[in-house]
């Protein structure tokens, strides 16, 4: 009986991480078209925002260059965090392979999170291509100060954790119904809107802003980007990070609860 140390644990998970990473590279056409797609999208996005700003200096207190840069960066981040298939879990539940996964010596949650992390790393070239396009068109701005950049790194890590947990939570609906295609699409596009990946919260109508700020999605993309552009300082900055951390903790507890019920269901009713 091998001793389950932290390092053996990590080795096991590294295999799954690599599986996720490789599965991106195997479908090379998907990756190449993903890159082409983001290059086109970034280009057209820059044009759309510049045309929109034609004749305005500032809208909702935001200048043209910030709005353009926000749109490009948000598209790049989203292309990495939201691959078309963000978990193999629903398919494995549907095919009844989940029983095998549960017999492995690692918890299903860490298996799935490791695989999702691998997929995200595999998709880094897509995001990089989008970023280069934005830079070439002069549509990207760096953070104002070094502390802003450091705060952004922390905030982005929390945002990524948030996305990974919610993606897995939504995928777990597969334990209760096989027909999750519609729900997945609703989640994908709903979260794109609510996370600020399509439009920064600055431009949202006044009545919608408080609703969105109370949902976990804005902590995924809008929060880190608002730090990047230096719109948060002092207490506001710390509050934003605290709220992001709070969401990650709450979501993680929720994930454990849902997971426990799912296991119960599989054990009692079969996969």
């Amino acid at each position: 009986m091998p001793v389950d140390t932290l390092s053996t644990r990590l080795t096991g998970l590294r295999g799954l991480y690599r599986a996720g990473y490789r599965s991106v590279l195997v479908y090379r056409a998907d990756l190449l078209f993903g890159i082409a797609g983001l290059v086109i999208q970034a280009t057209l996005t820059v044009v759309v925002w510049r045309v929109l700003y034609d004749g305005h200096d500032e809208v909702a207190g935001v200048g043209a260059s910030t709005a353009v840069a926000y749109a490009v960066l948000a598209a790049c981040i989203q292309s990495i965090l939201m691959p078309w298939q963000f978990s193999s879990l629903p398919l494995r539940v549907l095919r009844g392979q989940i029983g095998v996964d549960m017999m492995r010596p690692r918890s299903l949650i860490s298996q799935n999170l490791a695989q999702a992390a691998g997929t995200m790393v595999g998709r880094l070239p897509v995001g990089a291509a989008g970023l280069l396009t934005g830079l070439a068109l002069g549509g990207v701005k760096a953070p104002h100060t070094l502390p802003d950049l450091l705060a952004w790194v922390v905030s982005m890590v929390l945002g990524i954790a948030n996305v990974m947990i919610i993606n897995l939570l939504v995928s777990m609906i597969a334990f209760w119904t096989v027909e999750i295609g519609g729900i997945m699409i609703l989640y994908r596009f709903g979260s794109a809107f609510l996370s600020g990946a399509l439009i920064p919260l600055w431009f949202m109508p006044g009545w919608l802003q408080p609703i969105i700020s109370w949902l976990p999605f804005q902590a995924q993309i809008y929060a880190p980007l608002s730090i990047w552009f230096g719109t948060r300082h002092g207490v506001d900055l710390l509050g934003t990070l605290a709220l992001q951390l709070g969401w990650v903790l709450v979501l993680f507890v929720l994930l454990q609860l849902v997971w426990r019920r799912a296991v119960h269901k599989v054990v009692v009713f079969g996969g």
Binding site: G181, G182, I185
Partner: peptide, 13 residues
Amino acid sequence: LSAIVGGVALQGT
């Protein structure tokens, strides 16, 4: 229902 909701969400955003 789930599929129809998905269709509306996709274009609705």
